[in-house]
């Protein structure tokens, strides 16, 4: 089965003056439908760049990104826009730049292309209610709590009924209960709705919800060690066995 999203040997550098900053170095990743992949990395590790490249917002310096078997580099801008509108949901915590939109309009934005305003708004309100942010429908971004913002961002991505969800740091600033709620929502999107989810978080406990875990460190994406190789590790102090 071809993975829904496949990054192969992706690399990306930024130039700061004469200094090259290697953000991603030979990164490969496969994500299948129904699977939630967690990418752990501290702030500035390159998680956002990885997601942006996966979404096709940015092009890698080397390597390829395929979505459902199609190389994103070969997609026209029009095709990419269509992907973003219909297939790839992007969850970020920046919210709309037009700070004055009520959330039901913001969430409905991807739908206006094919639906009239009434239908678009109806679906947006439903999406908001599904993620548990129904009360945010009439409010502008500025007056939302961090939790509501995270939920609205997820609703904004889910409203287009995407196949892939790219989630950038959804739990920043959230208390433990809300963090569990938001990550649980993403988990059920993968588990129950069959979406492929890539979630990048600088928070290890959130990783426990993921089916697969990777860590982004110095531009490289680390996979878990093989079980056999575990002998090399000194386990948790005092521990002689696994739970």
């Amino acid at each position: 089965m071809t993975p829904l999203l496949e990054l192969r040997a992706v690399s990306r550098s930024y130039w700061r003056g004469l200094h090259e900053m290697r953000v991603l170095d030979d990164v490969s990743l496969e994500v299948h439908a129904g699977e939630m992949v967690g990418v752990y990395g501290q702030r500035g590790a390159g998680k956002t760049t990885l997601l942006r490249i996966a979404a096709g917002f940015e092009s890698p310096d080397g390597g390829t990104v395929s979505y459902a078997g199609t190389d994103l580099a070969r997609c026209s801008r029009r095709q990419l826009a269509r992907l973003h509108r219909e297939q790839i949901g992007w969850v970020e915590r920046d919210g709309p730049q037009s700070g004055d939109l009520p959330m039901r309009t913001y969430v409905a934005l991807p739908l206006y292309r094919h639906h009239g305003p009434v239908e678009a708004q109806r679906r947006a309100v439903a999406a908001l209610a599904r993620v548990g942010a129904g009360e945010a429908a009439e409010l502008p971004w500025a007056s939302l709590s961090d939790t509501a913002r995270a939920l609205v961002a997820i609703a904004h991505a889910l409203v287009r009924e995407p196949r892939l969800l790219l989630v950038d740091d959804p739990t920043a600033g959230l208390g433990i209960l809300d963090r569990e709620r938001v990550v649980g929502l993403l988990r059920s999107a993968a588990q129950d709705a069959g979406l492929a989810v890539v979630m990048a978080v600088p928070d290890m406990p959130a990783m426990l919800q993921a089916h697969e875990v990777r860590a982004l460190s110095r531009g490289r994406l680390l996979a878990p060690a093989d079980r056999d190789a575990r002998g090399a590790v000194i386990p948790f102090p005092g521990s002689q066995r696994s739970a």
């Binding site: 509108r85 037009s98 934005l109 991807p110």
Partner: peptide, 19 residues
């Protein structure tokens, strides 16, 4: 400026330039 911000939102929602 206000219009520029809204364009960014539309682009994020996946609308083509002609929309």
């Amino acid at each position: 400026p206000q219009r520029r911000r809204f364009i960014a939102d539309l682009r994020m929602a996946g609308h083509e330039p002609w929309v």
